Amino acid sequence: MIYIKFQDLSEEKQEELFQVSREHVIHLFGESIQKYVDETGADYNKLIDEEMIKNLYTYNFVFNI
């Protein structure tokens, strides 16, 4: 679970959440995505970014108001 203060949805906080999600995706799926990229020639960063956004929807957020 990720705890966020409601008033702290600044651009910096959003970037921090993106970075956490990106690292999580690379940890979980980095090798399989790299293998897919090697086989197909797809863009690694684009695939990671797409999975990063999807991954954010799997987190449980708690907002303290």
Rank of each mutant, 00 (worst) to 15 (best):
M1K: 07
M1D: 07
M1P: 09
Y3W: 05
Y3V: 15
Y3P: 06
I4Q: 00
K5N: 05
K5Q: 06
F6T: 15
F6S: 13
F6C: 12
Q7I: 09
Q7V: 10
D8V: 00
D8G: 03
D8N: 07
L9S: 04
S10R: 01
E11H: 09
E11S: 12
E12A: 15
E12K: 05
K13I: 05
Q14F: 09
Q14T: 13
Q14M: 12
Q14G: 13
Q14I: 15
E15P: 00
E15T: 03
E16T: 09
E16I: 06
E16G: 03
E16M: 09
L17Y: 00
L17Q: 00
L17P: 01
F18S: 04
Q19F: 11
Q19P: 08
Q19L: 14
Q19H: 14
S21H: 04
S21P: 06
R22M: 04
E23S: 12
E23L: 07
H24F: 13
V25R: 02
I26H: 02
I26W: 03
I26S: 03
I26P: 10
I26T: 10
I26Y: 05
H27P: 04
L28F: 04
L28V: 03
F29W: 10
F29I: 01
F29H: 08
G30S: 00
G30C: 00
G30W: 03
S32R: 15
S32W: 14
S32K: 12
I33K: 08
I33S: 08
Q34W: 07
Q34K: 14
Y36M: 13
Y36C: 11
Y36S: 11
V37N: 02
V37S: 08
V37Y: 13
V37C: 11
V37T: 11
V37M: 05
D38V: 05
D38H: 12
D38G: 03
E39C: 10
E39L: 14
T40I: 02
G41Q: 14
G41C: 12
A42C: 02
A42Y: 06
A42G: 04
D43V: 13
D43Y: 08
D43I: 14
D43P: 14
Y44Q: 14
N45Y: 07
N45F: 13
N45E: 15
K46S: 07
K46N: 08
L47Q: 08
I48E: 01
D49I: 05
E50D: 09
E50K: 15
E50M: 12
E51T: 10
E51W: 11
E51Y: 10
E51R: 13
I53N: 04
K54A: 01
K54R: 08
K54P: 06
K54D: 03
N55C: 10
N55V: 04
L56E: 09
Y57G: 04
Y57M: 09
T58R: 14
T58D: 13
T58I: 14
T58M: 12
Y59E: 08
N60T: 15
N60L: 08
F61R: 15
V62H: 09
F63I: 06
F63E: 00
N64C: 02
N64L: 05
